[in-house]
Simulated scan of single mutants.
Amino acid sequence: MTALDLKVTEIAEAAELIRAVTLEAPDGSPLPAYDPGAHVDVHLPDGTTRSYSLIDWDGGAAAPAAYRFGIRLEAESTGGSRYMHGLSEGDTVAVEGPSNDFPLAGGDAPSVLIAGGIGITPIVSMATALKARGAPYALHYAVRSEAAAAFADRLAEAHGDALSMHHDDRAGGPLDVAGIVKAADPSAHVYVCGPKAMIKAVKAAAEAEGYPAEQIHFELFDAPADQDGDTAFEVELASSGEVYTIPPGRTIIEVLEEAGEDLIYDCQRGDCGICQTDVLEGEPDHRDVVLSSEERASNKVMQICVSRAKSARLKLDL
Score class of each variant (00 low, 15 high):
Ala152Glu: 05
Asp222His: 01
Glu257Cys: 02
Ile264Trp: 14
Val21Trp: 06
Thr231Trp: 06
Asp27Trp: 02
Leu175Arg: 03
Lys310Cys: 06
Arg313Glu: 07
Ala61Asn: 10
Asp288Thr: 10
Leu54Gln: 05
Ala115Asp: 11
Glu74His: 07
Lys200Ile: 01
Pro45Lys: 04
Glu10Trp: 03
Cys272Arg: 00
Ala238Ile: 01
Gly37Asn: 06
Pro30Ile: 01
Thr251Asp: 09
Gly119Leu: 11
Leu87Asp: 08
Ala152Gly: 05
Ala223Ile: 02
Ser292Val: 06
Tyr52Pro: 08
Leu113Arg: 06
Ala94Pro: 00
Gly172Asn: 10
His217Phe: 00
Asp169Ile: 10
Ala3Met: 06
Glu16Met: 05
His189Ile: 03
Gly107Gln: 13
Ala208Pro: 08
Asp222Tyr: 01
Ala65Trp: 03
Pro110Ser: 13
Ala142Pro: 00
Val301Ile: 13
Ala223Asn: 04
Gly134Val: 10
Ile304Arg: 11
Ile114Lys: 11
Glu254Cys: 00
Phe69Arg: 10
Leu280Arg: 14
Ala14Gln: 09
Ala33Gln: 11
Gly80Val: 08
Ile11Lys: 09
Lys182Asn: 12
Ala188Asn: 13
Val177Glu: 09
Asp161Asn: 14
Asp56Trp: 03
Glu283Phe: 02
Ala208Cys: 09
Glu236Met: 00
Ser111Leu: 04
Pro284Glu: 12
Arg19Pro: 05
Leu316Met: 07
Ser239Trp: 00
Ser51Phe: 06
Glu254Lys: 02
Ser293Phe: 00
Gly241Glu: 04
Ser51Ala: 14
Pro122Phe: 08
Ile18Phe: 03
Gly241Cys: 08
Gly179Trp: 01
Gly134His: 05
Arg269Ser: 11
Phe151Ser: 04
Glu242Leu: 03
Gly173Lys: 09
Glu13His: 09
Glu261Asn: 15
His140Tyr: 14
Ile180Pro: 03
Thr78Arg: 15
Val93Glu: 02
Pro195Gln: 12
Ile18Pro: 02
Ile274Val: 15
Thr78Met: 08
Ala94Val: 01
Arg72Thr: 02
Asp230Ser: 08
Val279Asn: 07
Thr78Trp: 04
Glu10Ala: 13
Glu219Gly: 01
Val93Pro: 00
Ser53Leu: 06
Ala158Phe: 08
Glu283Ile: 11
Gln303Asp: 09
His286Phe: 00
Ile55Val: 15
Leu256Gly: 10
Gly107Lys: 14
Gly59Arg: 06
Gly179Gln: 12
Trp57Asn: 08
Ala142Ser: 15
Ala33Lys: 14
Glu10Leu: 12
Asp46Ile: 12
Thr9Met: 07
Val95Gly: 13
Trp57Ile: 00
Ala184His: 08
Glu209Asp: 14
Asp5Met: 06
Ala3Glu: 13
Val95Tyr: 15
His166Arg: 13
Leu314Asp: 07
